[in-house]
């Protein structure tokens, strides 16, 4: 009975939503409200106004930077939620415990990972720093660093990898993204504008482009570092949870 009711409800919802999607303006039509109202300014003037060649970066970090500040807070909040439920690995506890996350890996795999991880991180640094000129940016770069940490941890185990990024490094950097936004946002006030103003009215016009680019890169670096640390900390917290659940052997 319950299942039938749920099925009926979901079908009704699906029909309703499909109907709406059918009556939405056609996809890709140049006369769409989405294409004629706000977007043209972004596409035509983003480079001149935000000094970022990559329009996407211009929109997410500058025009709608406040939303992105909220989104990086959501990411940080996800970490806090994981830590609230699973708890963080404690100082001292990590030493000398049996690491079941370690997969017995062959020499070839270990060598390959040891060889590859630096290059993966180098690539992510490139992605982060070039966020304002080419596709990529802090979110992508941070995710790549997090991915490299996952590879490293699955092969070498929690002990080895938490020795390389210990808690004392992660704890202050987990919120780097929000801190970066707050710093750049407050600097906007110092420069005579509103919160999150990159182009400072009080600074000579000639300096503007490079100043804006530097501030944008600062925010990108914050997002990248913060994202990487959040992913790593979530990974470590989950491994520790497995440790607790697994029966002692």
């Amino acid at each position: 009975m319950k299942k039938v009711a749920a099925l009926l409800f979901i079908s009704a919802l699906a029909v309703l939503l499909l109907y709406v999607v059918a009556s939405m303006p056609p996809m890709g039509d140049p006369d769409n409200p989405t294409a004629t109202h706000v977007i043209p300014r972004y596409l035509e003037r983003a480079e001149e106004e935000t000094h970022t060649v990559n329009v996407v970066t211009g929109v997410i970090l500058n025009y709608r930077g406040y939303d992105t500040m909220g989104e990086v807070t959501v990411i940080f909040c996800a970490l806090a939620a994981v830590l609230a439920v699973l708890g963080r690995e404690r100082r001292g506890v990590i030493h000398g415990f049996v690491d079941r996350s370690e997969v017995p890996a062959s020499v070839i795999v270990k060598t390959m990972v040891r060889f590859m991880v630096p290059f993966i991180i180098l690539f992510s640094v490139y992605t982060i720093l070039h966020g304002e000129t080419s596709p990529g940016g802090g979110f992508q770069g941070g995710a790549v660093i997090g991915g490299s940490m996952i590879i490293f941890t699955t092969i070498f185990g929690l002990y080895e990898s938490s020795r390389r990024i210990p808690l004392k490094v992660r704890a202050p950097l987990e919120g780097a993204a929000v801190m970066g936004f707050f710093l750049v946002g407050s600097l906007g006030l110092v420069g005579g504008g509103n919160f999150l103003t990159y182009a400072w009215p009080r600074v000579a016009q000639g300096l503007h482009p490079s100043l804006v680019v530097w501030l944008t890169v600062l925010v990108e670096v914050g997002i990248g570092l913060g994202g990487a640390m959040v992913l790593t900390s979530i990974l470590f917290a989950m491994i520790r949870e497995e440790e607790e659940i697994a029966p002692a052997s």
Partner: peptide, 24 residues
């Protein structure tokens, strides 16, 4: 004029600074 934005962002900033304090 700037007060509302700081009312919102200061608690968020405080939240991201706490993990380090929690560690120390």
């Amino acid at each position: 004029r700037h007060f509302p934005i700081f009312m919102i962002t200061v608690p968020l900033l405080g939240a991201v600074l706490l993990p380090f304090l929690g560690y120390v």
